[in-house]
Design a protein around this nucleic acid. Structure first.
Lengths: 167, 167
DNA sequence: CCCGCGACGCAATAATCTTGCATGCCCGAA
DNA sequence: TTCGGGCATGCAAGATTATTGCGTCGCGGG
């Protein structure tokens, strides 16, 4: 596998990436103003980020209440057997299910942390049944129903920004 | 508070929103092709989503390995005192910290689930100290270091799509 | 049956993005 | 120190894409 050495990002790159990860809807002109660069220079940098895979993708974040209420839950999971194959199978099912927002394999007594999005408490229950109870390799799982989303996002901390300064 | 009754979304809306939440980089022309509408019709619908707040924002998702390795962790937190004020203070600190990706208030013995992004294991430890150990209202917390990100995203399940069909 | 509302497609216009080109800076080699 | 290559930039076209005006159509209420 090609392990690209840190592609060398200067302060402007950091600033740009930070702006983009908070709002990628701005025009090149606007961005250029923020970081002190011409639109074309900004465009070339962003093209590079994309080419190098620094920007994975660009998505629209939807309001969870789109279709009426939505119930989120985080689930802690422990598998019974830990073979490579079992993990692969579990991960595959998580990836395949559109109701699974996130899935992390973690250290400690729990093997996975899963974030689910369901349409109702009942749906959430059924989803748990389907994903975990029906899997006889899931030894134990615990559902933490979300009361309130304090903060959400996939934003990464970027080093050494003069100061925050979202607009 | 204005509680807008489900703003009535037809099948095309669902399809469009689903396309957008997976990749908002496409052109109106492309989108129109997918859903069987002209670019201008697509544009008008998307403008409406924005106006109605169905689309919260548009963001670029960055590669976590941007600046060298990144350590993710999920943290389970229980507060000592549960007054309204204490919760507000805790939530505020979570929102304010750029290293906190997500924070959910949950049901059960744990009060919060927090997702952190750090630059190293050490950084992660210090972050935990700063956010939770230093807060004398945090009764107990448990850090689940992420070994592997199986899946990530904020994608919501959209009902009744003919069939998946990402391109 | 008529009217008004809302959504559509098409076409013109406006805005944004992309690219070619010349310049300036930095750095390594002579 | 001086020369030359590589690289990023700004500017100014040129190409794409987004936005808007307009006429039409289908639907539901009067």
């Amino acid at each position: 596998m090609p392990e690209p050495p840190p592609p060398r990002l200067d302060e402007i790159d950091a600033h740009l990436l930070d702006l983009l990860q908070h709002d990628s809807g701005r025009t090149l002109h606007e961005l250029g103003e923020q970081v002190g660069l011409s639109p074309s220079a900004v465009q070339r940098r962003i093209a590079r980020y994309r080419r190098d895979g620094l920007i994975t993708r660009q998505v629209a974040v939807l309001d969870p209440h789109l279709f009426g209420p939505t119930v989120l839950a985080t689930v802690l999971v422990t598998l019974a057997r830990e073979s490579f194959e079992h993990h692969r199978a579990f991960a595959g099912r998580m990836r395949a299910d559109p109701q699974v927002q996130q899935c992390y394999r973690v250290a400690g007594p729990w093997d996975y942390v899963v974030v689910l999005a369901a349409r109702s408490t009942r749906d959430c229950g059924r989803l748990g049944d389907r994903l975990f109870k029906a899997d006889d390799n899931v030894q134990r799982y615990e559902t933490l129903v979300v009361f309130d989303t304090v903060k959400t996002g996939l934003t990464l901390p970027l080093p050494a920004l003069p100061q925050d300064g979202r607009s």
